[in-house]
Amino acid sequence: MASSPLGHPTRGTTGTNRLRRNDRWIAASDAFRRASDPLVIDLGYGASGVTAFELATRLAKVRSDAEVIGFELDPERVATARRQLEDVRAGRTSFAPDLRVSFARGGFEVPLAAGRRPAAIRAMNVLRQYDESDVAQAWRSMTARLAPDGMLFEGTCDEIGRISSWADVSPTGTPVRFTISLRLAELEHPGIVAERLPKALIHRNIPGERIHDLLVDLDREWERAAALSTFGSTQRFLAVVKALKDQGWPVLGDRTRWRLGELTVPWSAVAPAAH
């Protein structure tokens, strides 16, 4: 247990299935699937431990040996999550009683015993109240704890998990990918993700910045593909992704991911301009 955990308390907002899109991304990641120790950290899980339980449940479907540890700065939140875990163990919830989950006090320093290094650290909605200038150091603090092939997934989502985005950050603290993940049904326009960009990008959604260019192009192609709504929002989004690729955007992944409402590009494609 850390005596002085690093970081500032979050608002604690959480909710059932709020982070399902990010759960799915982590479960499919090489960092998790190929890990010798498939330990995943849910950092800053909030006022309830539910996101850690959900993450562990989804990861266990991919690897039965997956383990999740939730870290929070506030000891009261840790105590609450441990009480919830008691209910899980007693079979009083919908989660498996033997779910490999635990909770402890900690922050960006990720205080793990016996020199363990996690395959992945998830820090969603943690940096929202920080200054943009604080992001790089926070990334470095967290990624310093990763396994050599591990990954930090840091980003933001809305309160019900329909709009989200995140950065994949390597063990060196260098961001490598940026992903937008949207619930396509009833989506008015994909540029709404501007409200839920990671802290490193949210203030860069202005003319002259690449993230602004991407969101402008995304919305424009969404409007151009409006006629495809007859065939469903998924077909419309697939057309948008193809159009972006045709324009030269270095879109990663394939239709399997795009159909989920995901758009991933190398971080270099949206990296903030130097000032």
Score class of each variant (00 low, 15 high):
A138W: 12
A136Y: 11
A120H: 09
R117C: 00
E109V: 03
R128T: 15
V110E: 00
A119W: 02
L127S: 10
D134Q: 10
V135D: 03
A123Y: 09
V101D: 07
A123N: 05
R128V: 15
A114I: 03
M142Y: 10
A104P: 00
M124W: 09
V101C: 09
S141G: 04
S102L: 00
R100W: 05
S133D: 15
D149S: 14
A113N: 11
R116K: 10
A119G: 07
G115Y: 00
R140M: 09
V101W: 05
A104S: 13
A119N: 07
T143A: 05
D134G: 05
A119T: 01
A119I: 03
I121F: 08
P111D: 03
A104L: 04
Q129C: 13
M142P: 08
D149W: 08
G115T: 05
A144R: 11
F108V: 04
E132C: 11
P148W: 06
G107C: 03
G115D: 02
V135H: 07
E109L: 03
R145F: 02
L112A: 02
A113H: 12
R145S: 13
A144C: 11
W139Q: 04
N125V: 07
E132G: 14
D131H: 15
R117S: 00
P111G: 01
R117F: 00
E132V: 14
S133Y: 13
G106K: 01
Y130N: 13
W139N: 06
P111M: 02
G107V: 04
R105I: 12
L112N: 04
R105H: 02
E132K: 14
D149H: 12
P118G: 12
A136T: 15
A123G: 08
S133E: 15
D149A: 14
G115S: 00
P111K: 02
S141A: 15
